[in-house]
């Protein structure tokens, strides 16, 4: 049970993110919700490669042979970079929306409907 704790944490993060995305009206909070989901997924990826008592895979000359699996770390790094790009882009759209609509309330930002 205790070993599964990181996975449960991931699930909680993702669900919290989905909750924020579904019920919060502030556009910034929606972006935060998106980032919560992303953190959950990233945490999940990094947890996959974890080995107890192993060193980080960057120490090639380490005394201990046991290494943490390097691939998930590479994946997570990539995913974080992508996440940064999307967050930056999406926040800049939020700024533009605020400029044009003078509000960041999701229930008011809906000139496009039907």
């Amino acid at each position: 049970m205790i070993d599964n704790l990181p996975f449960i944490a991931c699930a909680i993060l993702v669900i919290l993110g989905l909750y924020t995305l579904t019920f919060k009206r502030n556009l910034i909070k929606i972006v935060i919700g998106l980032n919560l989901v992303e953190s959950g997924v990233n945490l999940f990826l990094i947890t996959l490669g974890y080995k107890s008592n192993a060193v980080a895979p960057i120490y090639t000359m380490a005394a201990k042979e046991e290494m943490v699996l390097p691939t998930p770390q590479a994946l997570t790094l990539t995913s974080i970079v992508i996440g940064l790009a999307t967050t930056a882009l999406i926040l800049s759209f939020t700024i533009l929306i605020y400029k044009h609509y003078k509000t960041i309330d999701a229930s008011k930002v809906r000139r496009l409907r039907e």
Partner: peptide, 17 residues
Amino acid sequence: RGESSEAAFKTMVMYTL
């Protein structure tokens, strides 16, 4: 156009999710 930013925001949220 405000609508463009709105559309881009919504699309981006959905795509990212």
